[in-house]
Amino acid sequence: MRSIRMSSEAPLLAIEALAIEFAGAAAPLRAVDGVSLALWPGRSLGLVGESGAGKSQLALAVPGLTPRQARLTGSIRLAGEELVGAAPARLRRLRGARIGTVFQDPSTALAPHLTIGTQLTEVLAAHAQAHGAAARRAALAMLERVRLPDAVTRLGQYPHELSGGLRQRVMLAIALIARPALVIADEPTTALDVTVEAGILELLAELVRGEGTALLLVSHDLAVVAGLCDEIAVMYAGRIVESGPARAVLTAPAHPYTAGLLAARLTLDSPLDVPVAAIPGNPPGAGPRPAGCGFAPRCARALERCRQEVPLLLARDHGQVACYAPLAPAERP
């Protein structure tokens, strides 16, 4: 059923063989190394990984927010339009109007010297969607949609007058006010308190589903993605190591890294009498990446071949896995 839908409809976002390179002291560092993925309208994809996985770099490359010194190769197409190498002016027009972005830390992502009302209406004015009183009405409606208490008062307030959770609601409002086709959320709840997090995630899901907007969510937390996304792509050392439907990947992971990440999570019912199942070693830093599979140095299942050749991301029952020694269904937790 799903495959028919996918083939008949063009993806909203299609990334192919994308690489992002930074000039390093000795060798260039590939933050993102040959990633391909597709996102359909109204669907949501979660990019999961630890620090150094390249997930944020990948997501921020879509609205053209890659740092200037980085080199971008491959292809990013939004509704058929190529974004790699697109003119900065064109990307600027797409940002806000077609692509909304929610950043991790609302206290630094909002302009401190402008009122919330101004920051919202600015987006509409920049894309010639509404001006003056109409823009103000739209801003108020948007603040009510993100369930900001006392929306009318908030329009005239500055970001510092709001708590972290409320600020992130304002960020959501700014990202969504121009009704973009794609929303990119980079760790949207990482800087927030747990009791606030759930509310923001719920709101994000509601806003995206209601409008048929596509969502690309970046998070280090599997649980955040689990609650919000249809599909998951797990990244490690710049590459996607496993992808597929969220439920399937989380309940029956095939890649040793995904399985390890799931086992290492502490939960409210993890056993107290045995050590936590940690993955040995550390996520790759800024140094040179090993040949072969990026996870091989930390992997208990690594074969000789894993250290020499990069495994390809191949279809495997529920999704795709890049591993020469994947977990068999019986071994999965």
């Binding site: 937390d221 599997l222 290492a264 999570r265 502490l266 940690a278 996520p283």
Partner: peptide, 13 residues
């Protein structure tokens, strides 16, 4: 990171 967090929790224990 989650994978490292587990190591440190074990070490403290």
């Amino acid at each position: 990171d989650v994978s490292v967090q587990a190591q440190i929790v074990n070490l403290l224990l």
